[in-house]
Simulated scan of single mutants.
Amino acid sequence: MRHVILTVLLLLVIGLPGYSDGGKVLVTLRKIGHELLLASGDSTSWISPIEELDERTFLIRFQRPFAFQPASLVEIIHRHLQENQGPLHYLVEVRQEKRNTVAYSYEVRQPLNWKTIACLTRRPPRGAYTIKIQFAQPPVQTASIGRVGWLAGLLLTVLLMGVGWRLVNRKTLPSAPVEQASPLTLVHLGPLTFCLEKQILRLGADRIELSTKESKLLKVFATSPNAVIDRNRLMEQVWGEEGVFVGRSLDVFVSRLRKKLQPAPTVRIVNSHGRGYKLEIDSPKEPGQDG
């Protein structure tokens, strides 16, 4: 009986069609378009479906004209591609389709070298742009059931048979103790509560979500409240693992973090010219103290 079941399962696995994980890169590119619109102050317009021109070339189209900062655009695109696709060699073109011209372009070879990218501090005019990203190699691979798929199916079948056999023949064993989840790390910043693991701020019942970079930046500030933190220290602790960073990236994320702290006016980030930034937290006033 077991041999019959094994044969049926093998036939089912071998007969499976190929599969594709190409949707992963499309999701990554949509995230890039979403963050670029947010950086330009647009949180409502639509991003058109990502166009796959060929297996190496993709196009991001936008519903409305927008403005972009080259340094921010380079950072956003590279961060998402590196997190979701790994080290890549790719070319980016910001195109004005109506004029059939390239408004801005650059090429990235691993590791990212900011010195090779021109015009990082210039700001192109607002326009109806599309973004074309072309990879040197296809960013994802499509697998089909061949010899490798057949072997994988065989191993899977054997594994399933082993699990089924154990379930049928096992004896009742005492339940293992349930491990307690590690407590969350909470940092109180005036009226705000900062949860490091979940990357959120809470103000009463309100929840403010932070990005990974914003959370790392706030974590550094929280270690030394009301003290000026040097720019180099901030960049090293937030971007140090990536090996490359620019001062403009720090200013962009400080600006974003400031906006998310606005609901708590007693907590703010102050610029210390020529030195760095300081997280100021006002002390609670005693009852009867003048406001």
Score class of each variant (00 low, 15 high):
56 R>L: 01
56 R>P: 02
57 T>D: 00
58 F>L: 01
59 L>S: 00
59 L>E: 00
60 I>F: 00
60 I>C: 04
60 I>D: 03
61 R>S: 14
61 R>G: 05
62 F>P: 09
62 F>W: 05
62 F>Q: 09
63 Q>H: 08
63 Q>K: 07
63 Q>I: 11
63 Q>G: 14
65 P>A: 10
65 P>V: 03
67 A>K: 13
67 A>I: 12
67 A>M: 15
68 F>Q: 09
68 F>C: 06
68 F>K: 04
69 Q>G: 12
69 Q>C: 13
70 P>C: 15
70 P>T: 11
70 P>D: 06
70 P>G: 14
71 A>W: 14
72 S>T: 13
73 L>A: 13
75 E>L: 00
76 I>L: 14
76 I>R: 04
76 I>K: 02
76 I>T: 05
77 I>Y: 08
78 H>D: 12
78 H>W: 15
79 R>K: 11
79 R>D: 11
79 R>L: 06
80 H>M: 10
80 H>A: 07
81 L>E: 07
81 L>F: 04
82 Q>A: 10
83 E>F: 03
84 N>C: 02
85 Q>T: 15
85 Q>E: 12
85 Q>Y: 04
85 Q>P: 12
85 Q>N: 06
86 G>K: 07
86 G>Q: 08
86 G>F: 03
86 G>E: 02
87 P>V: 05
87 P>G: 05
88 L>D: 01
88 L>T: 12
88 L>Y: 01
